[in-house]
Simulated scan of single mutants.
Amino acid sequence: MELLDAYSDKIKEMSMLSLICSCFYSQPHPNSLAQYGDMEVKSLNKRASGQAFEVILKAPADLSPDRPQPLLSPPKKDLSMEELQKRLEAAEERRKSQEALVLKQLAEKREHERDVLHKALEENNNFSRMAEEKLNYKMEVNRENREAHLNALKHRLREKEMHAAEVRRNKELQADLSG
């Protein structure tokens, strides 16, 4: 685990410019071996997927004493009760501030959801109203069509009755004339 931590620390310390520049060159750089403190980087043969490197970490015993050691966190000093109380209060303030921010975001989200719901209900009501108007229109057209059909049937019936009455009258006249 220490080796992994040392590796990640060294990667952070490595010059980003040199790392990026090495990725842009398609040919291996004449200095294919680079040293960064307790880390050694060797360029490997170019792969189809791009440049490849081998990173070798030196053991802590390999480090020379004149090299600066990685910075360690300063030793923790004992805090007074007042300092602890101030830190607790500051942490509580940050928590309250964060809580207020989250509550505000939730309120805004609820407001947005309410607006969306209101708009959806409004659109639903408009759709229902339009559907009802179309249905009423179709029912009115059907009623008018039925009335027109009935009127046409009544008119044909009257014509047939008039024709039948005329035929009866003609038969009566023929019967009176012949007999």
Rank of each mutant, 00 (worst) to 15 (best):
E2D: 12
E2S: 07
E2N: 09
L3D: 13
S8K: 07
D9E: 05
D9A: 10
D9I: 02
I11E: 06
K12L: 14
M14D: 02
M14T: 13
M16T: 10
M16Y: 15
M16P: 05
M16C: 05
M16S: 15
L17G: 02
L17E: 08
L17R: 09
L19I: 12
I20G: 05
F24G: 00
F24E: 09
Q27P: 00
P28N: 11
H29A: 03
P30K: 04
N31S: 15
S32E: 11
L33F: 15
L33M: 14
A34R: 14
A34Q: 08
Q35H: 09
Q35R: 14
Y36V: 01
D38M: 13
V41C: 03
K42Q: 15
S43E: 11
S43N: 03
S43G: 02
N45Y: 08
K46E: 01
R47Y: 06
R47K: 14
A48R: 11
S49E: 02
G50I: 05
Q51C: 07
V55M: 06
I56S: 06
L57M: 11
D62I: 01
D62M: 08
L63F: 00
S64A: 13
P65N: 03
Q69E: 12
P75F: 10
K76W: 11
D78N: 10
D78R: 11
S80C: 02
S80Y: 06
S80V: 01
E82C: 03
L84F: 07
